[in-house]
Amino acid sequence: MKIAFYGSSLLSSYWNGAATYYRGVLSALARRGHEIVFYEPDAFDRQAHRDIEPPDWAKVVVWPATPEGLRAVVAEAPQADVVVKASGVGVFDDELVAQTMRAARKDALRIFWDVDAPATLAEIRSRPGHPISAAFDEIDLVLTYGGGAPVVNAYEGLGARRCVPVYNALDPSSHHPVPPDPRFACDLAFLGNRLPDREARVETFFLEPAARLPERAFLLGGSGWEHRSLPANVRHLGHVYTRDHNAFNVTPRAVLNIARDSMAATGFSPATRVFEAAGAGACLITDAWEGLELFLKPDEEVLVARDGADVAEHVASLTRERAEAIGQRALRRVLGEHTYERRGDQVDALLRQEIAAKREKNAA
């Protein structure tokens, strides 16, 4: 099948947490024979911060973020068997969801793929006549980055025909154990951009433990923290390119995952960072959220913290031997159950099932 995918960026992870997810799922689909064209806008300085060049498994069309650029890429939607509009493109989102779904061929499968379901659902509920809800009659399938039953029930309750979570996962060819790198040596590292619905949780789960443990070294990676007051034992790196993520994960004694407010409240939404860290064999400490045990077993494959005091206790008591054992168990778990090859099988089966059902319905 030819898939036209309208998303934020495949080439850059700069202010674009979905990049790893897109690369993992779409490359797996390409290995199953699908022809992929990814349409990403030239916006937010992402093209100047590419992590990868256009891959051999997808054609990437970088379009000018103008009305003319929008018209040009929408005009290509009828060429595809599957038309996907992802959430969070960042420019012309309303126009893209309405126009791509309308432009798709009658026999094509039309998908809205939500990479931030809690935020999208809140926006839909707050805006009567939201373009996504208005397009539910044309959208055949909603796929989500996570969220479990609460998100599925919410979407189908709002009028979606069908909603299926496709959880993020591990690409072992991209995220895997590597030798430690002295640049990232510390007791606890956290990687995440400074976002309004995450900052308070970063304060609680990272900066507060750093203040409690002044003799320990903490490392903060990500954009937006340049003007934030930090404890003296916290070193800020700025943006960390994906090529350095493996070393960033494997070098510290432990790495920290902090869910955004909406993801933590919804549950069943493991961040990409969870699988990147586990794939490198890192010892991961995560804030608590419902559904975690579906992916990693607490106390054996991951350490769980309810608050900053728990994080500080984990860091203070964690030996190198225990950290390595937790990391190795996590690596075995994700390699066995949570790779993008498995997600590729899931999505491939969904596409074929939905296309067959649609063609049967159209022929009736």
Rank of each mutant, 00 (worst) to 15 (best):
S174W: 07
G221M: 05
E337M: 11
A356G: 04
S126K: 12
A309F: 08
D51N: 13
G33A: 09
T66K: 01
A134P: 01
N249P: 03
I36M: 04
D137P: 12
D345K: 02
A149M: 14
A18L: 00
A122K: 09
R216G: 11
F5H: 12
W57M: 07
A104T: 07
I111Q: 00
N257Q: 15
G129V: 03
D299S: 14
V315I: 15
P67L: 03
R306A: 13
T100I: 06
Q328H: 13
D345C: 14
R23E: 08
H239A: 14
Y155S: 03
K2E: 07
P55F: 08
D56W: 08
Q79Y: 05
R198C: 03
E321H: 10
R46W: 08
D197Q: 00
L292F: 10
S133W: 13
E290D: 15
T266G: 12
E313H: 12
M101R: 14
L350K: 09
D93R: 08
A264H: 01
M101E: 09
V304H: 14
V142S: 05
V178L: 09
A305G: 04
V97C: 15
G308M: 06
R31D: 13
E68C: 13
E53V: 01
L11A: 02
R322L: 03
N362L: 15
G344V: 08
Q47W: 01
A160K: 02
A28K: 02
R201N: 09
A288I: 01
R162T: 06
K358L: 09
C163L: 02
N153Q: 13
G24V: 00
T20V: 11
D310G: 06
N249Q: 10
L121A: 02
A154N: 11
M263Y: 14
R359M: 01
M263Q: 06
F205T: 00
F38C: 07
A75C: 01
H34K: 03
G224A: 14
L11M: 10
I124E: 10
R306K: 15
P131M: 01
A364Q: 14
Y155W: 07
C163R: 12
V240Y: 05
D310L: 06
G336L: 13
A264R: 13
E293F: 02
F205R: 07
D116A: 14
E35V: 13
R32E: 05
E226A: 10
N153H: 08
F38K: 00
R46L: 05
K2Q: 13
F206V: 06
